[in-house]
Simulated assay, not measured.
Amino acid sequence: MTACDRAAHAFRTVFDAEPDGLWCAPGRVNLIGEHVDYAGGLCLPMALSQVTAVAVRRRDDGRLRLHSEGFDPVDIDPGTGRVDGWGAYVAGVVWALDPPGFTGVDIAVVSEVPVGAGLSSSAALEAAVALALAELCGLPTDDAGRDALAAVCVCAENDYVGAPTGGMDQQIALRGRGGYALLLDCADGSVDHIPVDLARHGLTLLVVDTGTGHRLVDGRYGERRTAVEDAVSRLSVRSLRDLHAPEDVDSLDDPVLRRRARHVVTEIARVQDAVARLRAGDIRDLGPLLDASHRSLRDDFEVSCLELDTAVDAARSAGALGARMVGGGFGGSVIALCESSRVAQIEGAVTAAAGRHDLPRPRFLHAVPSPGARRC
């Protein structure tokens, strides 16, 4: 049974009615370009086959009623009440979109995207709800419309939920394309679709969920974003995108700010290199770029942790072509570019390494470039 089928079943069970429609949006992995979206940089995410599905029905009393298995239900008037917890991601979209003629909705949620794994379960939920409300209320959902919906979802997460995310996750959730990664220019919002044909080259992009959840609202993510903004101010540039070499940040007296800025500058360069290699069909050459990205995130940006480093090191030692942490950091997931024939061996090595360090047993999934938000 698909996530959409399960959402429809949950809706009928909870609300004793048929939904007006079913929508879903994917989680994501970012091939490369981490912690640069809010710095006007370039990133290269791709949508996963794992989705969050919502079954939605319009109401006529203005209320917002939400159900998701394993979470507390929500029943409020969004015009007079505020939602905390998981429901804030839905209520925030309603608040930020302010859809014309909105008279309330019932929503049942089913998700295949692991929560807290750094695979953007929150953006998947936001995007599915935003697309559903847009279609139900007659708002545009073409490419320009999806760009606008992504901005709505960012506003919901930044200003309603209070998580200072940069916008990459919402863009890929709404604008992903099967078989492609999304090259997103965060300076002007432009996108390009870059083919990623793993199977043709006998490769698998393995995702390792370390089982160590992370929260972007706990302050550390915000501290990194503030540091980047401080570096921009001290360097008197519009954004770190204006810098083109690691030595361009050497004038920063603060060693912490210098490291933070160096990560952003070098990570943007790695994205450009990765795109060139993908366009040339040299997908195996992404491995060293993934390794360099992880070192930069670990040492310069300092957002890695024991669980992530252990998984990266074990995957590399077992034969992965390259590996790095993904997402905001401080827990979550790792990606490893692997020969498909060696996936089982690498999974075993990562599991054994976690056991030696008395860490949670990791879970695995294979990242397949998939479509963005859609009606089921």
Rank of each mutant, 00 (worst) to 15 (best):
A3F: 09
A8E: 14
H9K: 12
F11P: 04
T13P: 00
F15C: 07
A17P: 00
D20G: 15
W23V: 08
P26S: 13
G27L: 12
G27T: 14
R28P: 06
E34F: 10
L44K: 12
A53T: 12
R58G: 11
R63C: 00
H67Q: 14
P73C: 05
I76R: 10
P78D: 00
G79T: 12
G79K: 13
G79R: 14
G79Y: 07
T80W: 05
R82Q: 14
G87E: 09
Y89R: 13
V90N: 04
A91H: 13
A91M: 00
A91K: 08
V93R: 08
A96W: 02
D98H: 09
P99V: 07
T103Q: 14
D106K: 07
A108H: 03
E112I: 08
V113R: 02
G116Q: 09
A128H: 06
A128R: 10
L131C: 02
A134M: 03
L139I: 06
T141M: 01
T141N: 09
R146Y: 03
A148F: 00
L149R: 08
C155V: 11
A156N: 12
E157I: 04
N158M: 03
Y160F: 15
A163S: 09
P164Y: 05
G167D: 07
D169M: 11
I172E: 10
L174G: 01
L174N: 04
L174F: 01
R175A: 09
R175S: 10
G178C: 12
L183F: 07
L184N: 07
D185G: 03
G189M: 05
D192K: 13
I194S: 02
P195S: 11
L198Y: 09
R200I: 01
G202P: 09
L206E: 01
D209K: 08
T210M: 03
T212S: 05
R215H: 07
G219W: 01
V228P: 00
E229P: 08
D230H: 13
L235I: 04
R241M: 07
H244D: 15
A245V: 14
A245F: 11
P246S: 03
D248T: 04
V249E: 00
S251N: 01
D253P: 01
R259H: 15
R260C: 06
A261W: 08
H263W: 13
T266V: 15
E267P: 10
I268D: 14
R270A: 02
Q272P: 00
V275W: 08
L278P: 02
L278M: 09
R279H: 13
R279L: 14
G281L: 01
I283K: 04
P288M: 06
S296H: 10
D300G: 03
F301A: 06
E302P: 01
C305G: 04
E307Q: 13
E307D: 08
T310H: 11
A314E: 05
A315E: 07
R316H: 13
G319V: 11
G322K: 15
R324L: 09
G329M: 11
G329T: 11
F330I: 00
G331S: 04
S340T: 15
Q345D: 15
A349T: 10
V350I: 08
P360M: 02
R361P: 05
R361M: 10
R363Q: 13
